[in-house]
Design a protein around this nucleic acid. Structure first.
Lengths: 191, 191
DNA sequence: CGCGTGAGAATGAACGTTCACTCATTAACT
DNA sequence: AGTTAATGAGTGAACGTTCATTCTCACGCG
């Protein structure tokens, strides 16, 4: 609770500002002010804005992955595991809208491209629960015979769009709707 | 072929630069250079960068809508009309990747939010072929009973993701795959 | 116990760069 | 000759980053 205190404050301030305003409207000076430190102080903890952005992303990703792993029904059928993943991710983002906004920014930036490439090529460090489902689903002929990128898009594309709509109040994602939506996603990929 | 000449050049240069680099890495000076005019000249045709960006978007949207209307099978069943729309849009973007990249940039920016809001509320100027399909589909009980925003996400979310993957060479969208994908989208929304 | 000291932490003014936009000047056209 | 179009150096604002300076505080010494 010494150095990590300021480090935390800076990361939290950066998260909020970037999630709400985007990378370009989140100047270091403002991040510093929000974190209650001087501008120069940030550079004691992060060598550049880029590094701060990347570290923040990695931290969020780890946290989300941990949440998804937690109650993951490993032994259960594919369909159930798939529905679980989509549902829990939606719930997580609804509870943590800033996290969603941040990840979205990151994804829609040059950073996001290489991240996505690694994921599709299976090069992400931790083993990837979702890609595993796709592999098994194709093998067991439960899923349509699509490249993984296509399955990924059919499953995640709608989710991202819907979270956006939810955050901007174009729609209210309640439990009933979430259930129906996850099943609609399943309809799209199941054989 | 007088004023419109330079106007065209400027819009084309802006389209290319913004599509490839994003709004922030497309300085007016560079747009001017690419268009073969001086920086100040742009302001004879567009009162600000914002206006240029908005005009460019409107033009692309009009063009895309015109293409979609062209062979639109008005009299045919809902399913056929839906598949047509998704397929033709995919084809259009594959043929005009810069247009896709630009629209994507625009959508993932503050501009995009209000645009999307208007669309969901049916406030876009021209009547909206896709939203019509959703209205009719719900009425005729062919589609799942979702809010239009949800149907929209299920239909378009995957498409946007896939175009991204296609443009970055993570996937090759050939005719066979496009057919299967559009049908998978239909599976997601059909009752 | 009080005090001086030194090293690490923090500061914020200043710097260099980038960018959208302006405008006095020049060129082109009628 | 006069009107419109085009130019591009210049302006000021915004930003990421630096660094000389100040602050903090644990520790050793008298």
């Amino acid at each position: 609770m010494k150095t990590s205190d300021k480090r935390r404050d800076i990361m939290q301030a950066a998260l909020e500002l970037i999630a709400e305003q985007g990378f370009h409207r989140a100047p270091m000076a403002e991040i510093a002010e929000k974190a209650g430190v001087a501008a120069g102080t940030i550079y004691r903890y992060f060598e550049s804005k880029d590094v701060l952005i990347t570290k923040l992303h990695r931290e969020l990703e780890d946290k989300i992955m941990a949440v998804l792993q937690e109650g993951y029904p490993s032994g259960r059928p594919l369909r159930e595991r798939f529905l679980y993943l989509i549902r829990e991710l939606l719930r997580y983002f609804i509870t943590n809208p800033l996290h969603f906004r941040y990840m979205e920014q990151y994804f829609n930036s040059p950073y996001g491209i290489s991240m996505h490439r690694d994921r599709l090529l299976g090069k992400s460090g931790n083993q990837d629960i979702l890609m595993d489902i796709f592999d098994q689903g194709i093998e067991q002929q439960v899923l349509k015979e699509f490249p993984k990128a296509v399955l990924f898009s059919l499953a995640f594309g709608p989710m991202i769009f819907l979270m956006r709509d939810h955050i901007f109040d174009f729609i209210v994602l309640d439990e009933a709707l979430i259930k129906q939506i996850t099943e609609a996603c399943w309809d799209a990929i199941k054989r």
